[in-house]
Structures are given as C-alpha cells and as structure tokens.
C-alpha cells in the first residue's frame, strides 16, 4: 500500500477533527508487530535456556567440563563476526534513511558475507567435533556410550541450540536477499523502509541470541582448565 492513502477524519460532538489510523501505511504498527514477533523468539529461546539450566542444575560439574572442551577461539571469532555484522546492518539502514540507497545495498551485501563466514566457521567447528566423536547420533552421543549424562545433555542441547541459531542465520540471509530485491524494485526506499527496519531488527535479535548462547556454552567452563580447543 505504498501509494497515496488518505486517512479518514472522525469528528467529535464539539466539531473537533481526529485523524483515524488506518491499517495502511502504519509505520509504528509494523514496528510494533515485529517487536511482538521478536518476543516470541525470546520465549522460544527462553524455553530452551530453561531446559539447559534444568540439566545444568542437575549436573553442574559435567557441564563445566563439557563447556571447557569447546573451541573458544572459533566461538569467539564468530562472536566478533556477528558483532560487526550487526553494525553493517545498522549502518545500512541509516544510509537508506539518509537517502544513500547504493550505500545501503553495499552494507546489506557486507552483512550477507559476514553471515556466510559465520556459517562456514560453524561448519568447521561441528566437523572438528564430529571427528572427536561428538555429534548427534554419533560416537559418544549414542545411548550405549559411557560418557556422563551431563555431558551428553550438554552436547545435545549445544547442537540443538547452535543449530537452531544457525537456521535463523540462514533465514536472515534469505530475508536480506529478498530485501535487496525489494530495494531494486523501489518497493523499499528512503520513504518506505519498514521492511528494512524490521529485517534489521531481526538481525539484531539473531545477534542477541548469540550474545547469550556464546557465554553459556563456550565460557562457563573457561575457568575449569583446558585452553581453547579440544
């Protein structure tokens, strides 16, 4: 509904005019809706963190040991990559609002590139873990292995949550490609950028989830001993 929409006017008994908010062209409504969507993400990951904390309470020592065996170097690199990508995303939106469409598109491409690098690093990490016999349905994660319960649960949750986070990253890449298409079609422009605004918000919540996933998995065992790597 990007074309001319003229809002209605309601008149009260004193004859004062009041603008009626229509569903068309409602920037704040779009923003509110997306924030509400993000609250569902909070509840979803909140539920998973709850499950994680549940087993952490039952097996505190094993969680620390399992955490210590994760690769903190790669995890930390990914943290920084996501951090920078949040910046490029934000700057792109800023450029769009200031009228610099070309710069905005460049920034989106940069964000996509960083997202792909993130996934590649994640892939290396998972491969290394697979080689150590720690992967879903594989090696020490099988029911008959004698690895302690706490560690099995830690890694089970680790693959689930980082996997689901990675899935969000992939969706984010898809959304950004779509956004580029919409920008090229001039459906998103310096005057109508709610889609861009919301995809930027999405990217921030993906980052935000990582802000908690990273320390809970990689860092809680950092003091337990063992340097980074397996």
């Amino acid at each position: 509904m990007a074309h001319a929409y003229v809002p209605e006017i309601a008149v009260d008994r004193e004859g004062n005019e009041h603008v009626v908010q229509g569903w068309q062209d409602d920037f704040y409504g779009g923003k509110l809706g997306f924030w509400l969507f993000m609250l569902t993400e909070v509840m979803m990951f909140g539920g998973m963190f709850l499950a994680l904390a549940y087993y952490n309470t039952l097996h505190p020592q094993e969680f620390l040991e399992a955490s210590a065996s994760l690769n903190r170097l790669l995890g930390g690199t990914n943290t920084v990559i996501l951090l920078v990508s949040a910046l490029t995303m934000g700057l792109g939106l800023l450029k769009m609002r200031a009228g610099d469409v070309k710069g905005a598109k460049l920034m989106i491409w940069a964000t996509i590139l960083l997202a792909v690098i993130f996934l590649v690093i994640k892939g290396f990490e998972w491969t290394a873990e697979y080689d150590h016999g720690i992967f879903l349905m594989h090696g020490q994660m099988l029911p008959e292995s004698t690895m302690a319960f706490g560690k099995k649960l830690f890694f089970g949750m680790y693959f689930t949550m980082t996997g689901l986070h990675g899935f969000h990253i992939i969706i984010g890449i898809g959304l950004m490609l779509w956004l580029l298409k919409r920008i090229n079609a001039n459906k998103v422009n310096p005057h109508h950028y709610i889609l861009y605004f919301n995809i930027a918000l999405y990217w921030d919540i993906v980052h935000l989830i990582w802000v908690f996933v990273f320390p809970y998995y990689y860092m809680i065992g950092a003091a337990t001993g063992g340097t980074s790597g397996h």
Binding site: T40, E41, M43, M44, F45, G46, G47, M48, A51, Y55, L58, H59, L136, M137, M141, L142, P143, F149, G150, K152, L153, G156, M157, F159, T160, L164
Partner: peptide
C-alpha cells in the same frame, strides 16, 4: 512459543537422539 520449542525438542529427541527427554541419556 514455549510449546512450539517443546515440540521441536521432542522431534529432535525422536530423530536425532539429543537426550533431553530420554532417561537413557539422563
């Protein structure tokens, strides 16, 4: 969303054996 993620975890448990609801893995 909480039941949504619960169902996802149940599916993960059933097909990838993540252990979260399986007493054999704690």
């Amino acid at each position: 969303p909480v039941v949504g993620i619960t169902l996802v975890l149940a599916i993960m448990e059933k097909y990838f054996g993540i252990g979260i609801f399986d007493p054999a893995k704690g």
